[in-house]
Nucleic acid binder design. Structure first.
Length: 605
RNA sequence: GUGCCCGUAGCUCAGCUGGAUAGAGCGUUUGCUUGCGGAGCAAAAGGUCGUAGGUUCAAAUCCUGUCGGGCAUACCA
């Protein structure tokens, strides 16, 4: 394809002295060709000639150098290219050997990807699952393109939500020994409710929040020292015993939270290179913002704000009137900290789209005094995860879908299946759901080696998240995601496993000649055509940081293989050696592509 | 009010740096099981691409208006 493109560009330049962008696309099926170009029609305007005539001229000229393909002209001026069997065979044979599509677009570059970003003291919900899967897939794509990727995770270990939670924990008289991640989650909901409904509670929480900031500033060790505790107690006018309790609850809860995150990430096969708790960047953010008061930021109503209106945005508060840095200032601190840590060539931040304008304001402010950091930063956003039927989830009320619930839901869906036949078909999946639930007790930060069943369920979920274009809300349908047919991860896995089975069979093959039907060659050709497009698709997916493009391609590829599988015998055929190459190439591409999505292919299903 | 995102088949989505008859899956209807695993394959029905204009040889795609939905819009993250 690249060869055709180059030759075509050359001819266009030669004939028309014009180096406009020559586009080569995959030709529609009915044309019987493989690739198509519309240059002739684009040239019609500048050359003042009929498109068909231009196309014919190009065809004649290109025909002199063309090799391995034939050219046709179609109304109203398309140039269609059909590859010879040998050209296909050669390319497919390369994929059968090894999938080598690494590009150098990012070679030698450092990219920091930031995603997932859960807050300690809050529960991981389905949105974290989604953004984690998407962020990891994008990271993998960038790694393939040669980048050194640093997966970063930014989370609010200080902030109002912590104040609310600790307040409720104190109200419930919990000690640091008997809190669990579940109790913390419940107390966050209770604390939020009190904050909204009870003025006294609101004041207490605001005050408590400042105590927590002070303790976090000291760090775990110092904040538990007698001398420091006495000073904090004096500063905030509360008893040393109370400070002690708060400190213990805080550090214990924080530890439980980070362990809970690590456990979850390990279960889904993901590992972060760097955690940036907000407490570790808040100071830096405060310093940067304060240093630019009067130039970039200004004081207003006792707070420090940035007037986004001057660049078409809105005003946001960076330091509130209590002197506490808001999320804005912490994000400023994070940008500088990342820069100091990695000197990134690119920083990719992935969050929900509700933060779109927020991030613009933060970046616009930093742009004024550290433009080089902002120029290398890209903010990607995604929508919310919704359930079928437009079910809304509210995290404030606590009635939302937890990340682990996703797995439970699938288990539930499977159990609902009523027919005897289907039940037995699903039994292995049920087992794996149970397996995953059990694994929740594990506490290793390394990604867990996954069993066959776990691979299937993770594939189902990850694929269900990744197949949508990023940006808008997505609908997660548990039923469809484990669906054994259609555009699902399970379907892709199944098609790959079938290919494996064919290859295993061929190891002890007996030659049993079968006549090759004419239509079999059509299925071969279609499969080959699809396989050969892989490198191009990956390039596009990397460029646009769009894993969904890869998903779409892999699904179409699996479909093409399934058709081939149904209609074309491999074992025993006189074309067994040629077909073996195709199957091997298909399997290699599928395994490689799914790998880029963070999905593993099991040996059997 | 202002800004951003979205609107394509009953449902969920591709297609959007303009190109050939707008494509998939689910669901519905109908076929295919001595066969490398039927967790599959084949086929049918289903569309005024929200709507009205404009630009162009050519518009789902670009521009403008408009309607509908979502998000953001000062001390949460």
């Amino acid at each position: 394809m690249e060869k055709i493109q180059k030759q075509l560009e050359q001819v266009v330049r030669q004939l028309f002295g014009n180096d406009l962008l020559v586009e080569l696309t995959v030709a529609p099926e009915e044309t019987g060709s493989d690739y198509a170009s519309n240059v002739a029609m684009k040239l019609a305007k500048v050359a003042h000639k009929a498109p068909m005539m231009i196309a014919e001229e190009i065809k004649t000229e290109l025909g002199k150098v063309s090799e391995g393909y034939t050219i046709e002209v179609a109304a109203p001026g398309f140039l269609n290219f059909a590859l010879d069997e040998e050209s296909f065979a050669k390319q497919v044979a390369e994929y059968a050997e090894v999938v080598d599509i690494s590009s150098d677009e990012y070679s030698g570059k450092t990219v920091v990807t930031e995603f997932s970003d859960p807050n300690p003291f809050k529960v991981l919900h389905v949105g974290h699952f989604y953004t984690s899967v998407v962020g990891d897939a994008i990271s993998r794509l960038l790694e393939l393109a040669g980048a050194k990727v640093v997966r970063a995770n930014f989370g609010g270990d200080v902030g109002l939500h912590v104040g609310k939670t600790i307040w409720a924990l104190l109200q419930s008289n919990y000690s640091s020994d008997d809190i669990t991640i579940e109790k913390i989650g419940q107390c966050y909901v209770a604390g939020t409710k009190a904050y909204e409904e009870d003025e006294t509670a609101k004041d207490e929480i605001t005050h408590l929040n400042k105590v927590v900031y002070a303790l976090a500033d000291l760090g775990e060790e110092r904040s538990l020292e007698r001398l420091e505790i006495e000073m904090v107690a004096e500063d905030f006018g509360i008893s040393t015993a109370e400070v002690m309790r708060i400190a213990e609850l805080y550090w214990r809860g924080r530890k439980l939270s980070y362990q809970y995150f690590a456990d979850f990430y390990a279960r889904i096969g993901l590992k972060f290179d760097k955690y940036y708790p907000e407490s570790t960047v808040a100071g830096r953010g405060l310093t940067e913002v304060k240093a630019h008061i009067g130039t970039t930021y200004e004081e207003s109503d006792g707070a420090v704000v940035y007037r986004g209106e001057k660049v078409g945005l809105h005003t946001r508060v960076f330091i509130n009137r209590e002197g506490v840095p808001t999320y804005e200032a912490k994000d400023v601190g994070l940008i500088f900290t990342k820069w100091d840590d990695w000197h990134f060539d690119e920083s990719v931040v992935i969050t929900g789209n509700e933060q779109s304008d927020y991030m613009k304001v933060v970046l616009a402010s930093v742009q004024e005094y550290a433009p080089e950091l902002v120029e290398h930063t890209q903010h990607l956003t995604h929508g919310m995860v919704k359930l079928p039927g437009n079910v809304k989830m509210s995290s404030r009320k606590g009635n939302f879908l937890k990340a682990v619930d996703v797995i439970d839901m699938i288990e539930h869906e499977l159990a609902e299946t009523s027919s005897e036949e289907a039940r037995s078909r699903y039994s292995s999946l049920q087992g794996c759901a149970a397996n995953l639930s059990r694994e929740s007790g594990l506490s290793s930060e390394e990604p867990q080696p996954t069993s066959v069943d776990t691979k299937i369920i993770l594939a189902a979920i990850k694929y269900a998240f990744l197949r949508y274009r990023m940006g808008g809300d997505i609908v997660f349908d548990p039923k469809e995601s484990v669906s054994v047919s259609g555009n699902s991860g399970v379907y892709l896995l199944y098609s790959a496993v079938r290919a494996k089975k064919i290859l295993q069979k061929l190891k002890n093959e007996e030659v049993n000649k079968k006549i090759v039907q004419e239509d079999e060659l059509q299925y071969e050709r279609k499969l080959n055509k699809k396989i050969v497009q892989y490198a191009e698709v990956v390039r596009g997916a990397v460029q646009e940081k769009a894993p969904y493009k890869l998903c779409n391609y892999l699904y179409e590829l699996a479909q093409e293989f399934s058709r081939f599988y149904e209609h074309v015998p491999v074992a025993g055929s006189v074309r067994v050696s040629e077909r073996k190459v195709m199957v091997q190439a298909y399997l290699n591409v599928m395994v490689h592509g799914l790998g880029l999505l963070g999905i593993e292919v099991p040996e059997a299903m």
